[in-house]
Design a protein around this nucleic acid. Structure first.
Length: 192
DNA sequence: CCCTGATTCGC
DNA sequence: GCGAATCAGG
């Protein structure tokens, strides 16, 4: 396989979306994550703007010659489309007051979802942060290595699974592990 | 051990 | 330019 325009384009897109090199490699096919990383470097887009460690904004001076009209500063933090297959139907974001909510469908085998109590506030905040970056996978897209934390109401169409890289050996990503597995000591402390 | 990106260097 | 091997970190 070689780096055709389309493949490079997809690479740029996914990298910009914060996808990991291995994920990109898997998507592209025929390349390893090393190849992806190598290409990323050669393209000169090694650091993506993750929501951390901005440190210094490097003003890239263009060599005063022909300034190619290129407008691509930052992909605005819009809700990523990215997954054509999974979630799309119920277009609009959040219905102010969904018809009926708060009702528990029928399934009891749903994971914890500790309703905003007993959990350390910081862990909660972390989860809220993370859920913005969630990959919003469908049930079938989950693997042993993706976070299986459910988000939203299963009775609604805006229901998905976190899908971020799960902690090895655990069913959830780091953030969700934080709220899923509480040290009993911490619980007791808070309860007391 | 699982994963991540970064770098090196022979091809 | 390419990417496997390696390195460094979580």
């Amino acid at each position: 396989m070689s780096w055709t325009d389309e493949r490079v384009e997809l690479l740029k897109k996914m990298w910009g979306e914060g996808q990991s090199a291995s994920q990109i490699a898997k998507e592209l096919g025929g390349v390893t994550r090393n190849a992806v990383i190598g290409k990323v470097h050669r393209l000169g887009l090694s650091n993506r703007t993750a929501g951390a460690a901005p440190a210094k904004a490097e003003p890239k001076e263009k060599p005063a010659t022909a300034p190619k009209a290129e407008a691509k500063p930052k992909p605005a933090p819009k809700t990523e489309p990215a997954r054509p297959a999974a979630a799309a139907p119920a277009a609009e974001a959040k219905p102010a007051t969904p018809p009926r909510r708060q009702i528990i469908p029928a399934g009891q085998p749903l994971p914890p979802q500790p309703s905003a109590n007993e959990i350390s506030p910081e862990a909660l905040a972390k989860v809220n942060e993370v859920e913005k970056k969630a990959k919003k996978l469908t049930l079938m897209e989950l693997t042993e290595k993706t976070c299986k934390w459910p988000v939203g109401d299963p009775a609604t169409d805006d229901f998905w699974f976190c899908g971020l890289p799960a902690e090895p050996g655990k069913p959830y990503c780091e953030a969700h592990v934080g709220v899923a597995f509480q040290p009993m000591s911490a619980r007791r402390d808070r309860r007391r």
